[in-house]
Amino acid sequence: MAKHLLEVKDLRTSFFTPEGEVKSVDGVSYYVEEGEAIAIVGESGCGKSVTQMSVMQLVQCPPGKILSGEVLFDGQNLLEYKSDSKEMRSIRGSGISMIFQEPMTSLNPVLTVGAQLCDIIITHNPGMKKDEAWAKGVQALKDVGIPEAEARMKNYPFEMSGGMRQRVMIAAAIVCGSKLIIADEPTTALDVTTQAQVMDLLLELVEKHGKSLVIITHNLGLVTRYASRVYVMYAGRIVESGTTEQILTNPQHPYTKGLLNSVPKLESNKDEDLVPIQGMPPILSNLPKYCAFLPRCPYATDKCRESDKPMLKDTGNTHFSACYLTEGQNG
């Protein structure tokens, strides 16, 4: 079994708002092995991004606060470090890199791409000469498939297309040699053909350079093609986890089933009506004591209404589901 590069245990992050405590991340545990690509799937507001922000300790405090849990990266517990400590700053970038949805907001609009890349390289390699850093930046742009890399180094972000900017972000992630890349909706703002190019590039980093990748997305198609394991999140909790094959071909949790049924499929017979999940996503500041999916669940029983939130239980072959209905099956 490969080493767990990142292991998150029972992470809890809340936001304290005038409306009350919002439990954005409510006891989330997951791990990433070395050289593996995993996906975290969920709809907006399910806490998938806040989970990753907590790992990087980028949650704004106040109103947000990481309450408890463990984030083990390469043997160290990151939560022992303060958010602005030297250790944490060195892990961001050289340990874990993050790629965001909208690359324009992550790049500085008044500096050239080259200046920004050199800045990153010199910060992580103190004492490096400027022209050395420049050469390294050019190489990184070549690695991510940007043509005419030398000329592109002198471009400002606005002179590049969306796909190109996202490649620059990936280049920034690889120049510091980080082992784990967290990609938060990396291709949502991109067109489909560009999306395929950017995702192929990310997967190449995993397969050829042994990096690990966490893809945060709501697009189940991306998951099928690029991830080997999947975690499905709903209302701040992981409701199902397993290999991509298990989740997509044999979903256990009613939410995963609903999600799969509500996506229009390119390949299927179009006359079938979509089966949407009824109702609306829950409001996180006012979650019930019982299972958060219960109001929308077509299979809910009395047991679900009377019991506490279900825990993740193994349904066989490391396929976990947090639902009372699936618990009995392997009982």
Binding site: A196, G221, T224, Y226, L248, T249, E267
Partner: peptide, 19 residues
């Protein structure tokens, strides 16, 4: 071919035409 589909076994069989 650039659009990934959710049918797991079908997706693994599909041929890609990279642009």
């Amino acid at each position: 071919s650039a659009i990934p589909i959710t049918d797991y076994y079908e997706e693994k069989k599909r041929k890609r035409i990279p642009l």
